[in-house]
Every structure is written in structure tokens, then in C-alpha cells.
């Protein structure tokens, strides 16, 4: 598709779906693909499985192979700014050159390691704070009048549907030195000088906890709501105090929700870019922002790829731990 095809997008849409497919079918690789597909003895089942497979394979799996490849390439001043790994050497041999320099560079420069650790620390603490704030909220929701639950649930979900970027932007107005919170506190005579909150780690924590709190509440709510309350009644009848009943019955039974909520906050917070960029200062180095800066400011594609691979390995480890814990929680029930 040519560069000029950016504009006629609307026109092609106006031409209707048939117009769009015919334009798509004119593309050489797609036409070849469609012709090949048409010749195969395919049933509906194959198409239903095959199409998403093709899409995800091409646009999700292959890209990671390319990232992995480029993380071993040399930085070049060229377009695109990286070297090719495989060369046809003069004698007809194929030479494969892997440059692990990008990874040793990540290991040697404390900036990257500190950003890595700081991201884990901030994401973990944010998830913990979300759990502490969100658990009582989910508990109250799950034990509320059933008629109210739908409304409460909608109230928790609604912020998620409004722009994430704009909700983070709102905190700039609240946390600034001449922002709403400082103005109110000075107006009330509680403080004389504004408290510096913007461009600190505190602002980043506020932003992450605020943005991801609904992701903690939803899984907690759904496990707490499903809970069999007769267990608590039985415990009470047998003389168990409410607080003890909570810690011996409710909390263990809600562990799957705790694990799900924790990872739903922890994993996206780990790679967060917008929040540390808009609310954080120089002290907040997070790995997502490092990757962004390497790519957009330094045009260091191989380094950015190596950062991505390092980040990805961390996500994979966390996912594995989460799977293990979830299995354990399920087994103990």
C-alpha cells in the first residue's frame, strides 16, 4: 500500500466493505495468499481457526522474533539504524554475526539496572497499595444489597471507559505547586508554602494506584460475591469472632481474586510509560520510559530491542509465578 493511501482511507470506507476487500485483494502478497488459500481444500472450521492464527502469528509472534534479532544487531547510522545479522560471505558461506554488546551494555550501565529495579519496586508497591485500598471496597460491594451491586460495579468500571491519558492529565492539575490540592490547603490555612508533589515518586504512585485500582477491585469483587456465606454463618454459630472468621475463611477463599488483581496491576504498571513521563521527575526511572527514550530520542533501535527483551523475560517470569500461585490457591481449596 502506498504512502498516498493514508488519505483515501475514508473514501475506501465510503465505498463499503466490498470496496475495501477489493483494494485489499489487489495487494500482491495478499492476493497470492488468497489464491493459495482458495486452492486448499478448506472447511469453515479451518478458516475460523486459521485466520486468527495467521493474524496473530504475523502481527504478534513474528515481531518478537524480529525484536530478538535486532537486539543482537549493531547500531548503524542508516535507515533502518541496525545491521543485518546474516551475511552472504564471499566464498558462498553464510555468516551469522551475533552482537551481545547491547546486553553487556545494559549490564554495565547502572542506569538500566536501576530503572529495571525501580520499575519492579514501583509496580510491586503500587499493586500492594491497590490491594489495601481495593479489598475493603470490593468486600463492601460484594456484601451490599444486590439491587445496588450493578450500580456500584458500573461506578468502578466507568472511569476505565474514559481516556486514560486525560485522567492522568487531571492529576497534573491536582498535584501542581499551584494546583488544586495546594490551593485548597493554603486557602484553609493548613500550609503556608505549597507542598511539592508533582514530578516526584509520590505523584507516580498516585497515578498508578488511581489508574489501576479498578483492575484490582473487579476480580476481588467477583470472587467475594461468589463466596458461600453459610460458611461464615457456621463459623459464627460455633463462636468464631468476625475478625478471625475473616482471616481463616474469607481471605483464603478470596486468594484467587487477590492473585488475579495483583497481577492485573503489577504487570501493566511494570511497563508503564505515560504515568512516569507525565507525573514523574528525574528520580523516577522506569524501564518503559527508558525504552521509549532510547527509541525516540537516541534512535538506538538495537538497545531499545535489548531493553524490550529484558523486560519481556521479567514479564514471563512473573506470569509463571502467578500461574503457580493461582494453581496453589485453587488446590488448597
Amino acid at each position: 500500500m502506498s504512502r498516498g493511501s493514508q488519505l483515501p482511507l475514508g473514501d475506501r470506507l465510503a465505498a463499503g466493505p466490498r470496496g475495501l476487500t477489493s483494494t485489499l485483494a489487489q495487494l500482491p502478497p495478499l492476493r497470492l495468499l488468497l489464491n493459495a488459500l482458495a486452492r486448499l481444500p478448506l472447511s469453515g472450521h479451518h478458516a475460523v481457526i486459521g485466520l486468527p492464527y495467521l493474524w496473530l502469528g504475523l502481527f504478534f509472534l513474528v515481531p518478537f522474533v524480529i525484536v530478538l534479532k535486532i537486539s543482537f544487531a549493531d547500531q548503524l547510522i542508516a535507515q533502518p539504524p541496525y545491521s543485518s545479522l546474516v551475511d552472504l560471505a564471499t566464498e558462498g558461506y553464510i555468516s551469522l554475526k551475533l552482537n551481545i554488546g547491547n546486553y553487556t551494555f545494559l549490564g554495565s550501565d547502572p542506569l538500566y539496572f536501576n530503572a529495571y529495579l525501580k520499575s519492579v519496586e514501583i509496580a510491586f508497591c503500587s499493586a500492594l497499595i491497590c490491594l489495601v485500598i481495593g479489598y475493603p471496597m470490593a468486600y463492601a460491594m460484594a456484601r451490599s444489597d444486590p439491587a445496588w451491586r450493578g450500580v456500584l460495579l458500573m461506578l468502578v468500571v466507568l472511569p476505565f471507559w474514559t481516556s486514560f491519558l486525560l485522567r492522568v492529565y487531571a492529576w497534573i492539575g491536582l498535584l501542581n505547586n499551584n494546583g488544586i490540592i495546594n490551593n485548597v490547603l493554603i486557602g484553609l490555612g493548613l500550609i503556608q508554602e505549597p507542598i511539592v508533589m508533582m514530578r516526584t515518586n509520590f505523584a507516580v504512585y498516585v497515578g498508578i494506584v488511581y489508574s489501576y485500582l479498578p483492575f484490582m477491585i473487579l476480580p476481588l469483587y467477583s470472587t467475594l460475591e461468589k463466596m458461600d456465606l453459610t460458611l461464615l454463618e457456621a463459623a459464627e454459630d460455633l463462636g468464631c469472632r468476625p475478625l478471625k472468621a475473616f482471616f481463616t475463611i474469607t481471605l483464603p477463599l478470596s486468594m484467587p481474586g487477590v492473585i488475579a488483581g495483583f497481577s492485573l496491576v503489577f504487570i501493566p504498571a511494570l511497563g508503564e510509560f505515560v504515568i512516569p513521563d507525565l507525573l514523574g521527575g528525574t528520580e523516577t526511572l522506569m524501564i518503559g520510559k527508558v525504552l521509549w527514550d532510547e527509541f525516540f530520542s537516541n534512535r538506538a533501535w538495537p538497545i531499545a530491542s535489548a531493553v524490550a527483551i529484558a523486560m519481556l523475560s521479567l514479564v514471563v517470569v512473573i506470569m509463571a509465578v502467578q500461574k503457580m500461585l493461582a494453581k496453589h490457591a485453587e488446590a488448597s481449596q
Binding site: 500482491p28 525504552l291 533501535w301 524490550a308
Partner: peptide
């Protein structure tokens, strides 16, 4: 669960590699 920066970077690298290999998509656009 994929961090957005990784999805973004990997897709861009795919599009660049595809453009080099088969000429599609030519440039980045909507």
C-alpha cells in the same frame, strides 16, 4: 499482559522489516 512499549516497538520493527522484504506496508500510516 504485554507492556505497550514492547507491543509498539515489536510491531514497528515488523513493519520496517516487511517493507524492506516485500515492500508492504510502504511507510507508516493509519
Amino acid at each position: 499482559v504485554m507492556p505497550e512499549v514492547i507491543t509498539g516497538l515489536s510491531l514497528l520493527l515488523l513493519f520496517v522489516a516487511m517493507e524492506q522484504a516485500i515492500g508492504w506496508p510502504a511507510g507508516r500510516s493509519a
